[in-house]
Design a protein around this nucleic acid. Structure first.
Length: 747
DNA sequence: CACCCTCGAGTTCA
DNA sequence: CTCGAGGGTG
C-alpha cells in the first residue's frame, strides 16, 4: 500500500507541531467518544485514520510531544475509568467438556463423528494452563480485551493488555470483519514465570503458586495510586505474558472451510497463534498427538493441562451446535494428575476441634499439578503404616482430583538407611494429655481433654465463627487463635468458648500474638533475638485523640468490629446457635430440623431419646449424642453463660415442640441443589431461598434431586446432574423457581 | 441391606 | 471441593 505521506511538505517546526498535536488530540478524542461511548459516527473512517497517521507522524518527529494519554497510546474509550468494568461479549464464551482417559476420548470422537454423519478431520492442539481472554476488534482496531468472566460478561482489562507483547492494537492486512472477536489464552511461559517468582522472592513479595494465578494477578493490577517505579514494575510483569489465539467468534461467512485455515487467517492479521497443532483424519491420529504431548509436556515452553480436540470442518460446527455450556464439536482431554517425587521431612500430628489426632506429612515444597505443596494428610497411624513411608524417605506425591495432595508411597530404592519410622505420639501434642481411642476398636486416637486442650478450644471457637454456624465474619482462624492462646496476657480471654459473649473491647486490647513463619511454622525473631509479636486489637491514639485527653493504646477497628459482630450473633436463628455448640453429628442440616421441630434449646434438652428421634434426619445416634452432650457440666455452663449474656436460645413465636409450621411454600416436597456462583445469590443465600420457599436444599446431587441450579464454576455436581438427566437451571430461572415455583418455569 | 445423605477434615485459592 | 466414614431411610 503506497503512502500519501511521501510527498509531504517540509517538516513543521516544533511549535507548529505542538499546536497541531493538541488540535488532533481533541479531534480524535471527540471522534472516539462519539464512536465508543455514544455509538455515533462524526467523521469517516478514512478521515479518522488520516488524523491518527498524522498524529503518529508528528509524535515520531517530536517524541516529547507525545503525552501519556495520547490517542496513539490508548485503546478504545478513555482508559482508566474502564479498567475491570464489566464487558458483555458479543458472543458467549463457552467452556469445554472434559474427558480423562483415552477411552472416553475415543467415545466422544465416535459420537461426534456419528452425529456429523461423515468422516471428519480432527484438529489437535495444546490446552494451555492460562487465562482465557476475548479480544474485540472493530474495523481492525482493538477496542476491548476482556476476561472470560461467566462466559457472557467479563472484566475489561484492555488497559493492561496494551503491555502484553504480541497482541496487536491494530490488525494487519484486510479481510477481517467489521467487528470480530478472537479468543485465546494469556499465560506466563514457564521461564518467564520462574523469573517472575524469583523477582517476587527477591523483593520479599509473595510468590505465585502457579502460572495461571500469576497471569490472572498480573492482568488485574491497577496503576492507580502507584508511583512511577511501581508502574514500571507492573508493566515489566505484563511484559512477561504471552498470548496465543485459538478461536474466533461468530463469522457468518468465512472465506475458509476449516478451523485450521482460520488459524492461518488469524496469523495473517498479525495475531499470535500456536504452531503446535495438527490436523489428523483418524481417532488413532488424535491418540498419537495426546500420547506425544503426554510424554513431552514439560518440553513445551508453557504449562499445559491437556489437549483440545476440535472438529476441523467449520460447516459441521453449526450442525453439531452446542449445549448451554460447551460446543459439541470440541473436547478437552485432561492429562492425569501429575505425580512427583519429594522428600518426606517429617510426620507431625495435629489435633482438630473434635480432638482427633491426625498425622500429616511435612514435605520439601514441590510443584505438582499447578501449585506448590508442602503438606498432605496421612489420616491416621494405620494409613501411615499401610503406605509404608518412613521419615526421610523420598515419596511419590500427587493431587487427587487435581486438588487434594496425597502421598502415594515411598521410593524404596532411594533409601540410604537414615530413614526412621514414625511413631504415633502417646500424648496430645498441644496439651500433653494421653491420647486414646474413644471407643473399642476405633483407629482414630483422640485427645480426651476436650474442655481445655488449646487445639480443641481454638478449633471450636473457629467453628463458631464459621459460615455454617454463627457466621461471624471477624472471627476466623487468626482471631480464634489470638483469643484462645495469645502470648500476652498469659491467661487467654477465652479459656473456653463459654465466655465468648462476655468479651469486651478491653479484654482484647492487651492481646499480643507471636508471628510465625507461614512455611516453617517457627516463631519469627526480631533483631535482638526476642520473638516478634503483633497486637492486632489495639492501635496508637491519633493526635486528635491525644489532644482530647485520651491516653494509651486504643482499640483497633478489628477489635470493635469483632465485639460488635459477636453481639449481633446473639439473636441469630436457633439452628445457628445449635451448630455453634459443637455437638457431635449436629451440623447445619440436623440443627435446622431440630430447631424447626422444638423451637427452643430448652425443649431439646427436655426431650427424651425417642422424642428426639422423631425428628426427620435424626436417629438414635444423634439423639444419644445430644443427650450425652447435655450431661456434661461444662457444656451446660456454656449454655448458661451464653444465655446470661443475652443469647437467644429460642425461636420467637414458635408454637412449641412438634408443632412446627409445616410445609407449604412453592417448593414443598422438592429437593434443589445449588452449585457454582449464581448471579444475585450468595452460596448461603441460595440455600436460604430454597428453604424459605419450603424446599429441601441438598448438598449433593442424587436421583432424588428435582432441580440443579448451576452457575459459572459449577463442577462435578453439574456433570452428575447432566448424567442423571436432572433439569438444570441458570440463575434467572432459579430466581423464578424460588419465588413463583416450578410451574412458573414453563411460561 | 442398599443406597443416599450429612458430617468432618484437609487443602488451596481468590 | 473432595473424600472417607458412618448414620438414616426405605
Amino acid at each position: 500500500m503506497a503512502s500519501v505521506d511521501e510527498t509531504a511538505p517540509a517538516a513543521p517546526s516544533r511549535e507548529e507541531a505542538a499546536d497541531e498535536v493538541a488540535a488532533l488530540t481533541i479531534r480524535i478524542n471527540e471522534a472516539r467518544d462519539a464512536y465508543y461511548e455514544r455509538d455515533t459516527v462524526i467523521i469517516s473512517d478514512a478521515e479518522y485514520d488520516e488524523l491518527m497517521r498524522r498524529l503518529e507522524a508528528l509524535e515520531r518527529l517530536y517524541p516529547e510531544l507525545q503525552s501519556q494519554d495520547s490517542p496513539t497510546l490508548t485503546v478504545g474509550g478513555r482508559g482508566e475509568t474502564t479498567l475491570f468494568a464489566p464487558v458483555e461479549h458479543a458472543e458467549r464464551m463457552l467452556s469445554l467438556d472434559n474427558v480423562f482417559s483415552a477411552d472416553e476420548l475415543a467415545e466422544w470422537a465416535t459420537r461426534a463423528r456419528a452425529a456429523a454423519g461423515r468422516d471428519v478431520h480432527w484438529l489437535c492442539e495444546l490446552k494451555i494452563d492460562g487465562l482465557a481472554l476475548n479480544l474485540r476488534y472493530r474495523r481492525g482496531r482493538l477496542v476491548s480485551a476482556a476476561t472470560r468472566g461467566d462466559g457472557r460478561v467479563g472484566e475489561d482489562v484492555t488497559e493492561n493488555v496494551r503491555f502484553v507483547p504480541g497482541i496487536p492494537m491494530q490488525l494487519e492486512g484486510t479481510g477481517h470483519p467489521e467487528l470480530v472477536e478472537v479468543r485465546g489464552e494469556v499465560f506466563f511461559p514457564t521461564a518467564a514465570f520462574d523469573a517472575l517468582n524469583a523477582r517476587q522472592a527477591e523483593t520479599g513479595e509473595r510468590e505465585f503458586a502457579n502460572p495461571r494465578n500469576a497471569a490472572s494477578g498480573s492482568l488485574r493490577q491497577k496503576a492507580e495510586g502507584k508511583n512511577a517505579a511501581q508502574i514500571e514494575l507492573m508493566r515489566a510483569r505484563l511484559g512477561g505474558l504471552q498470548m496465543l489465539v485459538h478461536g474466533i467468534g461468530a463469522w457468518p461467512d468465512p472465506p475458509v472451510a476449516a478451523q485450521s485455515e482460520v488459524y492461518g487467517l488469524l496469523a495473517e492479521w498479525g495475531l499470535p497463534t500456536s504452531t503446535r497443532f495438527r490436523v489428523v483424519d483418524s481417532i488413532e491420529g488424535v491418540q498419537e498427538f495426546v500420547a506425544y504431548y503426554g510424554e513431552h509436556r514439560h518440553s513445551v515452553e508453557h504449562e499445559i493441562d491437556g489437549v483440545v480436540v476440535k472438529v476441523d470442518e467449520l460447516a459441521l460446527h453449526a450442525e453439531l451446535g452446542a449445549t448451554s455450556r460447551a460446543p459439541r464439536w470440541a473436547i478437552a482431554y485432561k492429562y492425569p494428575p501429575e505425580q512427583v517425587n519429594t522428600t518426606l521431612v517429617d510426620i507431625v500430628v495435629s489435633v482438630g476441634r473434635t480432638g482427633r489426632a491426625t498425622p500429616y506429612a511435612v514435605m520439601e515444597p514441590v510443584r505438582v499439578a499447578g501449585s506448590v505443596v508442602r503438606q498432605a494428610t496421612l489420616h491416621n497411624q494405620e494409613v501411615v503404616k499401610a503406605k509404608g513411608v518412613l521419615i526421610g524417605d523420598t515419596v511419590v506425591l500427587r493431587k487427587a482430583g487435581d486438588v487434594i495432595p496425597e502421598v502415594l508411597g515411598p521410593v524404596v530404592e532411594l533409601r540410604d538407611g537414615t530413614e526412621r519410622e514414625f511413631v504415633m505420639p502417646a500424648e496430645c501434642p498441644e496439651c500433653g494429655t494421653p491420647l486414646r481411642p474413644m471407643k473399642e476398636g476405633d483407629i482414630d486416637l483422640r485427645c480426651p481433654n476436650a474442655r481445655t486442650c488449646p487445639a480443641q478450644v481454638r478449633g471450636r471457637v473457629e467453628h463458631i465463627g464459621s459460615r455454617g454456624a454463627l457466621d461471624i465474619e471477624a472471627l476466623g482462624e487468626v482471631s480464634a487463635a489470638a483469643l484462645t492462646q495469645p502470648r500476652v496476657p498469659a491467661e487467654p480471654p477465652l479459656p473456653t468458648e463459654a465466655g465468648l459473649f462476655d468479651l469486651t473491647v478491653d479484654d482484647l486490647t492487651p492481646i499480643e500474638v507471636v508471628v510465625r513463619d507461614a512455611e516453617t511454622g517457627l516463631e519469627k525473631l526480631d533483631a535482638d533475638g526476642s520473638a516478634r509479636v503483633r497486637a492486632p486489637f489495639r492501635r496508637n491514639p491519633t493526635s486528635a485523640e491525644r489532644k482530647a485527653g485520651l491516653e494509651g493504646p486504643q482499640p483497633s477497628a478489628s477489635a470493635i468490629k469483632l465485639i460488635d459482630e459477636i453481639a449481633k450473633a446473639k439473636t441469630k436463628p436457633l439452628w445457628r446457635i445449635l451448630v455453634s455448640l459443637n455437638i457431635r453429628h449436629v451440623g447445619p442440616v440436623a440443627a435446622r430440623a431440630l430447631a424447626d421441630h422444638f423451637g427452643s434449646l430448652e425443649a431439646i434438652r427436655a426431650a427424651s431419646r425417642d422424642e428426639l428421634a422423631e425428628v426427620e434426619g435424626v436417629g438414635s445416634i444423634i439423639a444419644d449424642s445430644l443427650i450425652d452432650w447435655f450431661e456434661v457440666d461444662w457444656h451446660r455452663e456454656i449454655v448458661d453463660r451464653w444465655a446470661a449474656a443475652g443469647v437467644q436460645f429460642a425461636t420467637p413465636g414458635h408454637p412449641g415442640p412438634g408443632r412446627a409450621t409445616d410445609g407449604g411454600g412453592v417448593l414443598a416436597g422438592l429437593t434443589v441443589v445449588a452449585t457454582g456462583s449464581l448471579e444475585g445469590f450468595t452460596r448461603e443465600g441460595a440455600q436460604e431461598a430454597i428453604i424459605a420457599a419450603g424446599g429441601k436444599a441438598a448438598s449433593s446431587v442424587s436421583k432424588k434431586t428435582d432441580f440443579v441450579a448451576a452457575g459459572p464454576g459449577a463442577g462435578s455436581k453439574l456433570a452428575k446432574a447432566e448424567e442423571l438427566g436432572i433439569r438444570i437451571l441458570d440463575a434467572a430461572q432459579f430466581a423464578i423457581l424460588v419465588t413463583k415455583g416450578p410451574d412458573a418455569l414453563e411460561q
